[in-house]
Amino acid sequence: MQLTINGQSHQVDIEPDTPLLWVLRDTLGLTGTKYGCGLAQCGACTVLIDGQATRACVTPVESVAGTEIVTIEAITGDAEGRRVVEAWVDHQVPQCGYCQSGQVMAATALLKQTPQPTEEDIAAAMINLCRCGTYNAIASAVRQAAKA
């Protein structure tokens, strides 16, 4: 199976129903994408599939062959991603940090779809869980990234 991840082509030989998350983490060693729940509940595994925020833990790898997959490892190669990361640093968003790859990817996807998001747009897009409760800092950082 041929996958395009962060602009690079990868040939992977694996059961087609394997979740993309585990192909990224174990097969390709891209561990920036996190495993949190495995049920699309928490969003720690969020990646971009053709620019859309997608939960890799429930996405069969066969379903994303032929798409453009972007993970946190390539985030600063992306214009919106760079802005989001700088806003994350400015607002000192992460605490434990474990959910933040997914949060950054979700924010990046939001800005790609909606460059000038309203508060409602932000609330609708930023639904990933954070046990450290960094939600207010996340919202502030997204606002800044949208303005930048």
Partner: peptide, 20 residues
């Protein structure tokens, strides 16, 4: 500023689950 914020914002921070 906290020392680990950039790494944690770019997926570079390594947790036990990430080690190999």
């Amino acid at each position: 500023a906290r020392l680990d914020v950039r790494d944690k914002s770019t997926g570079k921070a390594k947790y036990a689950i990430d080690l190999r």
